[in-house]
């Protein structure tokens, strides 16, 4: 039940309360050449980071940092995925497939 109610909250916020809601993507992380384009970046609580697979191979961007866990699964080249961080803290982001790809998102 808790999972369901949390989902509803997340959906309401991130899915857009109104049908015309728009979220500007002001921070992007690119993945060309099997590397993240930045090693670290900062966002404010509730802001999104867009993980852009502009590489030639799939990437599996994810984090197990408490409170900001996410797993994008296998994302095909030519696909960008926004992720909104709702809890302040340091988020260690990896590509599960390619261990060279590591970065940190600091959520203020």
């Amino acid at each position: 039940m808790k999972r369901f109610s949390t989902f509803c909250y997340a959906f309401a916020v991130f899915g857009g309360v109104s049908a015309v809601a728009a979220v500007a993507a002001d921070q992007s992380v690119h993945q060309k050449g099997r590397v993240f384009s930045v090693e670290a970046l900062k966002v404010k609580t509730g802001e999104a980071v867009v993980f852009v697979n502009d590489d030639t191979v799939p990437h599996n961007v994810m984090s197990t940092s408490a409170g900001n866990e996410f797993n994008l699964g296998s994302v095909a080249p030519g696909t960008a995925m926004p992720v909104k961080f709702d809890k302040a803290g340091s988020v260690q982001v990896i590509c599960a497939i390619h261990p060279r790809m590591k970065m940190t998102v600091t959520v203020d």
Binding site: T6, F14, V50, G67, P82, K84
Partner: peptide, 21 residues
């Protein structure tokens, strides 16, 4: 096996151009 769902929120995929090899 996650115990809670206090997690980052994933938005909808966006198609972006990929530079041709």
């Amino acid at each position: 096996g996650s115990q809670t769902f206090a997690a980052a929120t994933i938005g909808a995929p966006i198609t972006v151009p990929v530079p041709a090899p």
